[in-house]
Structures are given as structure tokens and as C-alpha cells.
Nucleic acid binder design. Structure first.
Length: 569
RNA sequence: AGCGGGGUGGGGAAGCCAGGUAUCCCGCGGGGCUCAUAACCCCCUAUGGGGGAGGAGGAACCCCGAGGUCGGUGGUUCGAAUCCACCCCCCGCUACCA
């Protein structure tokens, strides 16, 4: 299928690793995993050699604390949650080549080997620091796990890093009456030794990398350059947590690697693991050590500095020649009815709830249509219904269905266009123009823009049918007209397959194909279907959602939360 | 507080870097059209649903129309959404949440 003479482009598509102390919500999904899935599916359609990987981030204090409360081991809790999340992603049709976890033996070993190398190369030093310690729980407390009274506004539940009430940044030592967030005991100050990553040493190299990388989006580039120029600080690598990957530095027995600093290395270890499982243990190097491999990381806007500064710095410090990020695709936030998603306030929709009330393709379509590419974007049920009804059902579904029905009833197969029709020729031309333009948007990871062009193209198809009125024509005259209309159906199936893979496959089969549309190539959308293909009896692809459907869905979600709470396992 | 992003008719976006009649999609009001979809109807049913017929209103599609002076103020200019200054609002980051 792929031209052998041409070297296939190599791509690695990554999404931020979800932290599995809660079920991801729709905002988490669109920012990273769903967007990455659309990208991976699109890139495969272009004929590229693609690896799409991610995994569960399992270590760290929140899970350790939660397990403690539940009276089970952190590993048991994390594994349990990982299994749930993994299954949910399958239900969302996320086409991971490898969805793994930070407890994977491949990852653990990789992280330790990696940091040994970074240590040997002189980028790690240790120092003694003063930290808050809870004598009752016998653990050091991250700032976040200390609560107390805000010295500025008097709010009594201020966290050690920031007061949620007045928004001021704090130090835990500034809190009046500080308490351990877990047990309420008064923490004491205790000294402990930690290991640090010498980020400043790489400032110049990082600045050059960011400046010269033409593919980074402007917002990521500006923010990162600014941070580098203001001066980077060493970054702490270790924690006193028990639940984590043991730090491999001499004298660091009992310390673990800080979750963030190890989870990012999952981008590499997950690819390594993927090829090992396929019995090609050396092939991951073809991807990670080839500077022509393109990598794209789908993340929320809060994650930019980690991916544009710290992760590249780690890659540099290893001295192994890993390919640096080609670009990052950072989204703004999806809001729910104007406010941020919040588990404690039960505000939002979680990815397990969503699938219980509407089909997966409705959600995928709506989320891509609302993808916050430029600014925070609001999800409301009214918007959901509008997009499903007007765009998915009326513009796209209705066009496809009316064309398939007309052709099926009249010919039962894709007709032979035995004569030339000027309107039909124009439509073929229009389709080809859109296919190219939508491809460009997809390559820029502007999925919202791409989707809006697809909807527009379906509108062109509807207008074309209105003008040509094939139902008034004889079989002979209608053939070229419907042939062009079927070309558009085929093009829509191919171009929609990254976004709504299930529905695209159904259309593909209605057209008479028996293979998988996702195994075809994007450019096949330029060509009409083969005359003579036996059409299958078409069925409506989607249904409109009514006000009552929405009310039912909301009630069903509420009911579920009575039992289980929002975003909980 | 500093830094980054954003503020464009009711909703969503483009235009801004390289100043010159404010653009597109949706929504709203009026009109046109009927191949598809769906209510009512008929048949079958293991009551979940399945099949047939039909074609009002409405939807797709087409035409016409209403609605914004581009967050605010000031400046540069013959001319500012676009350039400059100051200010306001929203979001993020500021290194021990992940």
C-alpha cells in the first residue's frame, strides 16, 4: 500500500500521562488523549510510520495518601485505577499502540538507567533542605499537604503553596497554625537530603533549542524563552515518598524519584516497551535516535514548561542523542457552563459518565468541534445538542444518507458515469480542493478548523443536490451526478475517520468496501469510488438529540453520582 | 506582584506581525424548495425492538433581512480591530500538586 521507494516519515505521538487518582474528565480528554488520538489516526492515514503511546502516572503523594486512607497498598490502588482508565480509553476508541504505566518494569529500569547516566554526566548534585514533617504520619509533607490560616486574608483552609481564597502564593512556614492535611497534627521542621537536576547548566543549549525550533506554537515559545532568560533554577529530583521509583544515586537509599521527573521519561520507555513486546527490542532506537523522527506532545496549557524546558533538558543531559520535541500542541481549557471542572464541586462531566448517555462518536465529534485551540471554551448541553443536531446529523449524516439512499434505490451499486456533467465535474474539483486544505489544517493539528471545513464541505454537497435535483433525472442523466455525490461520501468517510472512526467505518461499508477505512490513505479521498461497487442498504447514521434526551442524560448522570460521586473510581 | 495567552454582533472563530469599505459558521426574523429524516398510521414481536406505508409542520439546501465600531481611555496617522502608551477583565505559569 505504501510506495516502497519512498522513505516513510516516522512520527511519535504522545499525550500527557493521566495521573490515576481520579477518572479523567472531558477537559482532560480533549486536551491530551483525544487530540493525540486524532493526530495519530490522521498521521497513519498519510502513510507515516506512527507510534502512539501514553500511560498511567501512578506514583506520588496523592495516591499514597489515598491508599493509606483506604487501608490498601498504593500499588494495589494504582493498579486498580489503571485498569479502569485503560478500559475507558478503549471504549473511547483511543488507538494507542501502547498504553502502559509507570509501574511497568521496563519503565522502572529505564528511569534508573537514565538517571545514572545523567548523574555520571555531572548534572545531578545533592543538598540538605528544611522541610515540614508530620510526626504522626511519619512522612514529609509537600506544601500542598499542609493547611492552615492564610496570613493575608485569614482564610482557614489555605494550602501551603497558595491560598485558594485570596489567590496569594504562600510558603508553608507563613501559615498561621499549620496542620498536616492528612491527620491534622502539627508538622515540625526537619532537614533532609535531596538530589537536584542542574537545569541552569543547560540554559544556553535550551535557549538555542527553543529559539531555533520553528514548529513550536507561539505561546509555548514565548513563555519558555522568557523563563529561560529570567534564569533557570535547579530542579529537585527526589522525594522521601515510599511509593515511587527508587533513586539510583549513591547515598540516596530510601529516596524515590519525583513523579514528574520520572513520568516524562515514559515517553521513551513506552516506545521501548512497545517494540519489545512486538519482538523487535532494538527498533525503538530507530525512532528515538533518528533526528528526522517527528514528535508531538498533546498537553494542557499548564504543562508547557515541563515539555519545552525540563523534558528537553533531561534528554540533553543524558548525552545519548535523543530526538528533542518537534512540537507541542497545547490547548487552553474546556470549561463546563463557564467554570472549571471540579471533582469536589461535582461540576463537569467525566469520561465514564459521558459514554453512558450518548454514543462515543457524538462525544468525539462535539469535543473536537469545541477543542479549545485559542482560548478557554465553554461546554454546555445546549452546545452539545446544537453540534450533534446541526453539524453531525443534518449537515453530515443527512447528506451521506440521502446520497446513499438515492444511489442504492436506483442502482444498487456505484453507477458508471457514462456521460459528462458540468456540475458533477465542478463538485469533483471542489472535493479535491477541500481534501488538500483539510489535510493542511490536520498537519497543523488544528482539528477544530479541519472539522469546520469538513462540515462546510458537506454543506457544499447539500447545495449541489439542491441544484442538480438528481431525483428528477433519468437513470442515465443522474449517473454522473450521483457518482460525484458518492465521491463526496467517500471523501467524508476517509477524512472523518480520525475523528469519528466508528461512524466513518459504517459509511465505508455502506459504500460497498469490505476493508478498514483506517487502513486506507488520506489521498484516496481525491478519487471517486470504483463504479460497480455493490452498495449496502443504508441506515441513518445519527439521531437528533432532543431537549428531553438531554434532561434524561443529566438525570442519569446525577443518579450515578448519588452512588459513586463524580470522577471517582 | 512578575511573565505568557486571550477579550471581535446572542454563541463559536478569522482578520492584527506587513494600518485603508469588519469576514465566516451557528443562532434569530421573513420567504422558497421536497430526494432524505421523523410524528400520526398499519403489520410482526422473546416488549428490548423489527418491518411497511406515508409525506402536514419543521430540518437540510436556496433567497431576503435584523443585529457588532472590534474590553476601556488616550496617542501616532489623511485613515486604527490592526501601530504606541496606560488601564480593566478572564485563564495559565512562577519551580515541593500532578
Amino acid at each position: 500500500m505504501y510506495p516502497l521507494s519512498e522513505k516513510r516519515e516516522k512520527w511519535m505521538v504522545f499525550s500527557a500521562w493521566p495521573y490515576v487518582n481520579r477518572v479523567p474528565h472531558l477537559g482532560n480528554l480533549i486536551g491530551s488523549i483525544l487530540s493525540a488520538d486524532v493526530a495519530a489516526r490522521f498521521l497513519r492515514l498519510t502513510g507515516a510510520d506512527v507510534v502512539f503511546a501514553s500511560g498511567s502516572d501512578m506514583h506520588g503523594t496523592p495516591i499514597e495518601v489515598e491508599a493509606l486512607k483506604m487501608g490498601i497498598s498504593p500499588k494495589e490502588l494504582a493498579e486498580r485505577n489503571h485498569a479502569v482508565v485503560k478500559e475507558l480509553f478503549e471504549k473511547w476508541d483511543i488507538s494507542f499502540d501502547n498504553y502502559t504505566k509507570t509501574e511497568s518494569p521496563v519503565h522502572v529500569k529505564f528511569v534508573q538507567d537514565f538517571y545514572k547516566k545523567v548523574y555520571e554526566n555531572g548534572y545531578v548534585f545533592d543538598d540538605v533542605v528544611q522541610m515540614l514533617y508530620c510526626p504522626n504520619d511519619k512522612m514529609f509533607l509537600p506544601d500542598r499537604f499542609v493547611v492552615g490560616t492564610c496570613p493575608y486574608c485569614g482564610y482557614e483552609k489555605a494550602h501551603g503553596d497558595q491560598c485558594e481564597n485570596c489567590g496569594r502564593l504562600l510558603e508553608p512556614t507563613l501559615l498561621i497554625n499549620p496542620r498536616c492535611a492528612i491527620c491534622g497534627a502539627t508538622p515540625i521542621i526537619k532537614s533532609t537530603r535531596h538530589w537536584f537536576f542542574d537545569l541552569p547548566k543547560l540554559s544556553e543549549e535550551l535557549e538555542r533549542y527553543v529559539e531555533e525550533n520553528k514548529n513550536l506554537p507561539a505561546n509555548a515559545k514565548n513563555m519558555s524563552l522568557q523563563m529561560i532568560r529570567e534564569g533557570l533554577k535547579p530542579r529537585s529530583l527526589t522525594r522521601d515518598n515510599k511509593w515511587g521509583i527508587p533513586a539510583p544515586f549513591p547515598g540516596a537509599e530510601g529516596k524515590t524519584i519525583y513523579v514528574w521527573m520520572e513520568a516524562v521519561l515514559g515517553y521513551i520507555s513506552a516506545v521501548k516497551e512497545y517494540f519489545e513486546e512486538r519482538g523487535e527490542p532494538e527498533r525503538w532506537k530507530e525512532f528515538w535516535f533518528d533526528k528526522d523522527t517527528k514528535t508531538v506532545y498533546f498537553i494542557g496549557k499548564d504543562n508547557i514548561p515541563f515539555h519545552v524546558i525540563i523534558f528537553p533538558a533531561l534528554l540533553m543531559a543524558s548525552g545519548e542523542g535523543y530526538v528533542l520535541p518537534w512540537t507541542v500542541a497545547a490547548t487552553e481549557y474546556l470549561l463546563f457552563k463557564g467554570l472549571k471542572f471540579s471533582k469536589s464541586k461535582r461540576h463537569g462531566i467525566w469520561i465514564d459518565e459521558a459514554l453512558e448517555v450518548f454514543p462515543v462518536d457524538y462525544w468525539r465529534f462535539v469535543l473536537i468541534a469545541l477543542r479549545p485551540e485559542v482560548r478557554d471554551t465553554n461546554f454546555t448541553w445546549e452546545e452539545f445538542a446544537r453540534i450533534v443536531n446541526n453539524e453531525l446529523n443534518d449537515a453530515i449524516g443527512n447528506y451521506i444518507h440521502r446520497v446513499l439512499t438515492l444511489a442504492y434505490k436506483r442502482y444498487g451499486r456505484v453507477p458508471e458515469p457514462s456521460r459528462v456533467d458540468a456540475e458533477a465535474e465542478k463538485l469533483h474539483e471542489t472535493i479535491r480542493g477541500y481534501v488538500e486544505s483539510i489535510k493542511e489544517s490536520m498537519y497543523k493539528f488544528r482539528f477544530k478548523e479541519a472539522l469546520s471545513k469538513i462540515v462546510q464541505l458537506a454543506g457544499e454537497g447539500n447545495a449541489y443536490l439542491n441544484r442538480t435535483k438528481p431525483w428528477d433525472l433519468g437513470d442515465e442523466e443522474a449517473a454522473p451526478v450521483l457518482y460525484a455525490a458518492l465521491h463526496l461520501v467517500k471523501a467524508l468517510a476517509i477524512m472523518l475517520s480520525p475523528i469519528i472512526p466508528r461512524s466513518a467505518q459504517r459509511v465505508w461499508e455502506f459504500l460497498g468496501y469490505s476493508d478498514r477505512v483506517e487502513e486506507r490513505l488520506w489521498d484516496e479521498a481525491l478519487e471517486p469510488p470504483e463504479p460497480g461497487l455493490p452498495l449496502a442498504k443504508p441506515e441513518p447514521l445519527f439521531h437528533k438529540v432532543s431537549q428531553e434526551d438531554i434532561e434524561e442524560a443529566v438525570a442519569k448522570i446525577e443518579e450515578k453520582r448519588e452512588k459513586k460521586g463524580a470522577g471517582l473510581f
